[in-house]
Structures are given as C-alpha cells and as structure tokens.
Design a binder for these strands. Structure first.
Lengths: 145, 145
DNA sequence: ATCATATAGTTGCAATGGCATCCTATTTGC
DNA sequence: GCAAATAGGATGCCATTGCAACTATATGAT
C-alpha cells in the first residue's frame, strides 16, 4: 500500500469523508454540498455569492446551487443588496443560526475520527502538508487558466 | 488560514486535482474517472470488476461505468470468464497498453506538482499521514454500514 | 433435483460540481 | 449621455459517484 499516488489517496479520502458527512447530515435534510457554506456564512453574515465562491474555492454555479438548496430548506435568507442590485447579501435564518452548534460538533467529530491514533503534532503536520499541496494545486490550476 | 477543517482541505484538494488531471487527460478522450482503473488493470491483467472495485475503494456501479467508457474508447477489453460466467476478465487493449507510459508520466508530473517545495521526507510524511487518515475513514465508513 | 440464497455486473436515479452561456445591473469610455 | 464592456448571479449541460433495484449465473440445503 505504499506506491499509491497522491491522486488516489486524495480521491479515496474525499469520497469516504463525503459518505461519512452525508450520513451525519441526512437527518437535517442537508448533504455534503452545503455544510461548508453554512460555516462560511456564519463567519461572515451578509457576504455575497462572489465572496463565498472565492472562500470556498469553487465555481460560482456551485455556490448558486448550494445556496438555493439552503434557502429552500430554510437555513439561509438572501437579501438584494440595494447599494448594488446585482448582489445578494446572504444571512443565516434563525433555523440556520440554531443549527450551527450542531454542525460544528459534527465537524469536530469528523476531525477527531480522521485523526484517531494521531498525535497533536502529527495533526498539525498534516494540516501544514495539506496546505502546501493545496497551494501547489492552486498555482497549477491558475497556470492552466 | 489555520482553522480550516480537514473536510475543507480534502474537498478543495480533491476538486483541484480533478481539474488538473481532467485538463491533462482531455486530449486522450479520458477524464478523472477512468485513469486509476487503467493503472490498476495494467498491474493486474485479467482482474474482474469486483476485485477492481475493492482496490479502487468505490462502488461497483462506478467501476462498471468507468470500464464501459474505457471499453468504448478502446483502452480495455472485457472477456467473459468461462469458468464463472458472471465474471468478466479485464485486459488492456494494445491502445491501452501503449498509453500506460504516458499516463504514468502524467501522474508523476502531478505528484511532482503537488509536492513542489516539499522535502523528500515531507512527502513521505504526507503519504503516511494521508494513509492514517484514510484508514480511520475506512473504519468509520465500515462502522456505518 | 429443486428452490432459496448469494454473487458479479448493469441500470436508473439523485447529488455534487465544473464549464459555458445567458440575463440583468453597473461601470467605463468616448 | 449612451454604447460597450464588465460583474454578480442563474441556468443548462455534462461527468463522476453512490445507492438501490434488477438480471443472470452459481452455490447450497433439503
């Protein structure tokens, strides 16, 4: 199990974490495609979709679709920005606000699960190394565009 | 950028590597959903879909669809296993065989790209830590089922 | 020998996400 | 001031993937 390429590690790890998170969010009507948006909106109430897209590092279409779902489920509200009517300002609803502690607990559990039998310094190291790889990937994607 | 959860790192890193690989495979008619199967088949000619599914750690439906695409593109061939006619034996075609060195080079380049500015020991460490996280994720998914 | 069960693979459906395109609102250049 | 360019967001289309239900073959228990 040692000649596995990064590509495969990342792929399998991603798909497995999706399965775990989908499982835990199911009872709230949510899926793996929305939870990170809730966290980001909780941190920056009134943020618009462009900024969200940048923070989440995805396509603006993905953001639009995730927010549509969150809105229809009643977790967020979109207000037209009267200063620039192209924008929406995104806020958590009361329901969304109330869900955040639960969500944070779920994510904390996921992090704990993934880092079972790892020391604190290994966990820090992991984040640093993932961060480096991510920066390299970002540079490469930007180079392609 | 330090309170990012593992969930987000893994998600972004996965999506970015997909973008890079899709870009590089485009001219061969392939996408990110097939290349790991080619590598696995090259390593184990005659393997069946169940074994492939286990190695790739995905759903058997994903395997079936990836192989359909590879077959229709002429990269692989499926032979009914006459000893047990439920099985297929999967082989690379000449075209598939001929493509393997190119594919290996592409993956080597991806690994190099991702590990830019990382020392050899950091790269080893990364694989070990990804491996631990993956094992933890696998255990959790098995627990859920 | 037959009928139930298990197994390999396929298909339909839904979720996620990227790319391209479109629409509307705003900004810029003349 | 107005046409052209730009920007935020929405929508359509496609690829990847998992789950569930299905088909066909094989095995096993009575």
């Amino acid at each position: 199990m040692n000649d596995i390429s990064f590509g495969k590690y990342i792929s399998v790890l991603y798909r497995y974490t999706q399965i775990i998170i989908n499982h835990q969010l199911k009872e709230y009507g949510l899926g793996s495609g929305q939870y990170l948006f809730l966290i980001a909106i909780a941190k920056s109430p009134g943020i618009n979709q462009k900024e969200l897209t940048a923070q989440m590092m995805n396509d603006k279409a993905t953001t639009a679709k995730a927010l549509s779902k969150l809105e229809s489920l009643g977790y967020i509200e979109r207000q037209k920005d009267e200063a620039d009517r192209r924008n929406y300002k995104i806020f958590l609803s009361d329901k969304g606000e109330a869900f955040i502690p639960t969500l944070r607990a779920i994510l904390q559990t996921l992090t704990s699960t993934l880092s079972t039998e790892m020391t604190a310094s290994e966990i820090d190291q992991s984040k640093e190394l993932l961060d480096k790889m991510l920066e390299n990937a970002i540079k490469e994607v930007n180079r392609l565009k």
